[in-house]
């Protein structure tokens, strides 16, 4: 029993790392640009396909390929901010809400056309390997994904807290007008926020590829979890999103273990409902950190 519980917690934490990469991106964009990016999951999908092609065409390991997917998606993020989101900022809610929603639909259907609905998988030397510690089973691919997700989250935190650009992003998130008075160019900061968020989504895609299939709708699995984590962790709060993602991974895994394989998400959505009803500002409270 105790071992089953421990195994479920480990499974949850491991996948929670991936949720964290997606939700940190969503919360960063919301905190800085004040836009909800409904298309964040589609950038995970693009990261997966990119890694899939790098693996099948050039034999590059998916985890290694994040040195390509991250910069590529960073540039995509900058372009999306510069050419699309910038146009709807300052307008009424309608275009702000539906722009990224439309982008999500477009990207899903484009990938259906280009890649078909077939599942694509990459098999690596570690795809079937696992560590056995005591009676616990830790798949290597998920362990790599989790470890790198934590490294990237920490790197983002260090960027936000030690560099001038990172501090400017936090300042703009906390008070955009006053940040402008300090000489901060909001468009530049928004471009970097989109770039970093999409790079994290791309990293999530690369890290998933050794143990998860790529298909056009794959992003929806992760963006759903990301939105719950972003709300639980307080909108705009990066460490909050990280902690909430790990909690949700564990909650989902416990649900699968103790309620049923198809019912894992019940626990997650129950957590969301209770949080919204009892503590609508999220578990962390406060604002963009």
């Amino acid at each position: 029993m105790l071992e089953t519980l421990a195994q479920a917690v480990i499974n949850g934490l491991l996948i929670g790392g991936i949720y964290a990469l997606v939700s940190i991106g969503v919360t960063l964009i919301f905190g800085v640009v004040k836009i909800v990016n409904f298309a964040q999951g589609e950038f995970v999908m693009i990261g997966m396909y990119l890694s899939f092609f790098l693996a099948t065409q050039f034999g590059i390991d998916p985890v290694v390929s994040l040195v390509v997917t991250m910069p590529v998606l960073f540039v995509v993020g900058v372009l999306i901010q510069h050419f699309l989101i910038r146009r709807v900022l300052g307008q009424n809610d309608m275009p702000q809400i539906f722009l990224t929603f439309a982008l999500s639909l477009l990207l899903v259907n484009l990938s259906l056309m280009l890649f078909t609905a077939n599942y694509r998988t990459v098999h690596t030397w570690y795809s079937d390997e696992a560590l056995h510690i005591g009676g616990l089973y830790i798949p290597l691919a998920k362990l790599f994904a989790f470890a790198l997700a934590m490294v990237l989250s920490a790197a983002l935190w260090i960027f936000l807290h030690t560099t001038d650009l990172g501090k400017a992003m936090r300042a703009a998130a906390q008070n955009r007008d006053v940040a402008m008075l300090m000489g901060i160019n909001p468009n530049r900061v928004f471009c970097v926020a989109l770039g970093v968020a999409l790079a994290l989504a791309g990293a999530a895609g690369s890290l998933l590829m050794p143990f998860y299939p790529a298909y056009p709708l794959v992003g929806q699995v992760f963006v759903l979890m990301a939105f719950v984590a972003v709300v639980l962790g307080t909108l705009g709060n990066v460490p909050g999103a990280l902690v909430a993602s790990l909690m949700m991974g564990v909650a989902e895994s416990l649900g699968i273990q103790f309620i049923g394989a198809d019912s894992g998400l019940i626990v997650v959505f129950l957590m969301l409902l209770l949080t919204l009803a009892l503590r609508p500002s999220g578990l962390a409270g406060g604002r963009a950190r």
């Binding site: 001038d164 501090k167 400017a168 936090r170 300042a171 906390q174 008070n175 006053v178 940040a179 300090m182 901060i184 406060g286 604002r287 963009a288 950190r289």
Partner: peptide, 12 residues
């Protein structure tokens, strides 16, 4: 900037 330290406010 409420969620930043005094020094960070000055640096910004």
């Amino acid at each position: 900037f409420p969620e930043m330290s005094v020094q960070e406010n000055l640096e910004v």
